[in-house]
Design a protein around this nucleic acid. Structure first.
Lengths: 265, 265
DNA sequence: CGTGACTATTTTGCATGCAATTAAAGTGAC
DNA sequence: GTCACTTTAATTGCATGCAAAATAGTCACG
C-alpha cells in the first residue's frame, strides 16, 4: 500500500540521522555513544538509535516498541526493526514478550542490584588488568575526561550519568580485551538506564572524585587499592541511587502505560 | 519448488530433534545443555541445536554456516536460521562476516585468553555470592555432580569438558542472578569451544579435584579461599589447554576450509 | 601455460505477504 | 449494570521473493 520506492533497499536512506540530531557537536570524545564504529548494517543503525533513545529516556521504561512503528520511523522494514529489537533484548535494554511485542526494559530493583553486582566483578577485572599498565597518553585522556565530568557536575544530571558511564567504558577499552569491553558496555548501558530510572537528582555527582582516585591508584600500580576503590565506588553509586527509590518506582510503573497511551507513541 | 506444506509454519516440525539425538538418555541433570528451559520459538530451537553442534565439534571451527543449508536442515526458512546465527554471534560461538556469511567461531589464542580472563572475574563474583550461603540441597547437588564428573574423568574427554562447564553453570545458577547466569553461560560456552579446539587430551581431567575443593570452601563460607581456588582453577585449566597449542592451531586453521569443502557441508 | 576480464551462480541483505495469536470492541443474557 | 461470549482489529511470527554483493567459472589474450 505504501509503495515507497521500487522494492529493495537501494534507496530508502532515512536511517542515518533519525534520533541522533538532538545533541551537540559530533566530536568523538567518548561522550557521544556506546558504539564507536560507524554502523555497518541498517540493523545496527536502528539498534544504535534505539539504544540512544532509551538511554536518554526519550523512550520511557515500559513503553511499547511495535515493529511497524519503528520500521516506519527509520524508513526500513519490520525485519530490520525486529532484529534490532532482538539484539537490544540481548543487551537487556528491551524486554521481548513472545507474541506480545517489545517493550523498553523496566528493570526491577532486584534486576538492578543484580546488574550492579555483575558490574562490580567486571570492573574489578578491568582495574586488575590496567593497574600499573597505563600508558602516558591514556593517563592524559583519563584526566582530561575527568575534567570534563567535573565541569558538568551539578549542572546537567543526565549528562553526568552519561559521562560517568563513558568513563568506565573508556577504562574498559584500554584493556584491549574485546569480550570484557562488550560486557562492560552492556552493563554500563543497563546501569545508565537504571540510574536514569531510579536515580535521585544529583545522585551521580560525587562520583567524579572517586573516578580521580581510581585513576590515581591505577597509575600507582596499586591493583588491590584500585579494586577496592572501584568496588566501593560502584556500591556507593548503586546505594545512592536506590535509597529512596522504592516508592517512586511504583508510581512510575503505574503511570508509564497511561503516559504512553496519552502520547499516542 | 519445494512446496513443503501450505505456507505458514503451523506444520513444519522437523525442528525438535535434528541434532539432539546423538547422546544418551534425556535425563535433565544439567549435563545435557546450556539451555534449561524448553525453546519457546523456532529461532531458539535452531539456536540451541546449532550451539550444541558447535560445542560438540560436529561443526568444526571455521566451517561455513550458510543460511540456506541451515534452514533446510531444520525445516524452517532462512529467516529463522539467520536470526539464530545472529544470536549465536552475540554469544561468540559464530562469527558473522558482512555480505560473506556466518562461520563457526575460530577464536585466536588472544581471544581465548581474553575469554578466560573475563571468566575469572565473573566466577569470582559467583563464589563471592555463594560462599556460606549454599543450602543443604544445593550442596548435595554439587557433590553428586562432582561424583559424576569423577566417573567419566579420563574416560571420555569431550564429556569431561562438557561436565566441567556444566559444573560452573550449576554454581552460577545457584546465585539466582539472571545476568550473571547469562554471562557465565556465555563464557562457559566459549571456553568449552576453546578447550575443545586447543585442549590436549586429558587436559581437563585433574579439574575435578579442584571443583571439590571449591565446593568445600564455599560450604565453609570462606569466600576469599573460594575465590582464590576458583581463580587458580581457571588459570590452570587455561594454562593446561594452551601450553602446546600454538603449532597445532595453525595447522587446524589452515586445514579447516579444505575439510569443509571436502565434506561438502 | 599463466593472467586478466567478463559472465554466471550462489548467497546474503532486506522487503513484503500471509496466517495465527492476542488484545479490544461490540453484543447479548442475567 | 455486570459478566460472559463473539467478533473485529492490530501485531507478531514466519516464509518467500527480489536485488545487490561476492564467489566461482569461462574464455580470450599475452
Amino acid at each position: 500500500m505504501i509503495t515507497r520506492n521500487a522494492q529493495s533497499g537501494g534507496t530508502a536512506r532515512s536511517v542515518n540521522d533519525p534520533t541522533a540530531k538532538g545533541k551537540g557537536p559530533p566530536a568523538n570524545d567518548g561522550t557521544a555513544a556506546i558504539r564507536t564504529a560507524a554502523p555497518t548494517s541498517r540493523t545496527e543503525a536502528v539498534q544504535d538509535a534505539l539504544r540512544q533513545a532509551i538511554m536518554e529516556q526519550k523512550l520511557q521504561p515500559g513503553a511499547r516498541l511495535p515493529e511497524d512503528a519503528i520500521g516506519e520511523t527509520f524508513g526500513t522494514s519490520r525485519t530490520i526493526a525486529r532484529e534490532a529489537l532482538g539484539r537490544l533484548a540481548v543487551e537487556g535494554l528491551v524486554e521481548l514478550k513472545p507474541n506480545k511485542g517489545a517493550y523498553v526494559a523496566n528493570p526491577s530493583l532486584e534486576e538492578a542490584l543484580d546488574t550492579f553486582m555483575v558490574r562490580r566483578g567486571l570492573e574489578c577485572t578491568v582495574t586488575g588488568l590496567l593497574a600499573g599498565k597505563l600508558k602516558p597518553g591514556e593517563i592524559d585522556a583519563l584526566n582530561c575526561f575527568i575534567e570534563k565530568e567535573h565541569s558538568v557536575s551539578g549542572v546537567d544530571d543526565r549528562e553526568s550519568i552519561r559521562l560517568a558511564g563513558a568513563f568506565h567504558l573508556l577504562l574498559a577499552r584500554m584493556t584491549g580485551n574485546q569480550l570484557l569491553i562488550r560486557y562492560v558496555t552492556e552493563v554500563v548501558s543497563r546501569c545508565s538506564l537504571i540510574l536514569a530510572m531510579y536515580g535521585r537528582p544529583h545522585s551521580a555527582d560525587c562520583g567524579v572524585d572517586e573516578h580521580r582516585q581510581i585513576v590515581q591508584a591505577l597509575v600507582n600500580g596499586d591493583a588491590s587499592r584500585a579494586n577496592e576503590l572501584m568496588d566501593h565506588h560502584l556500591a556507593s553509586v548503586a546505594g545512592r541511587a536506590m535509597l529512596e527509590a522504592r516508592q517512586e518506582r511504583d508510581i512510575r510503573d503505574l503511570l508509564a502505560p497511561y503516559a504512553a497511551r496519552i502520547k499516542g507513541l
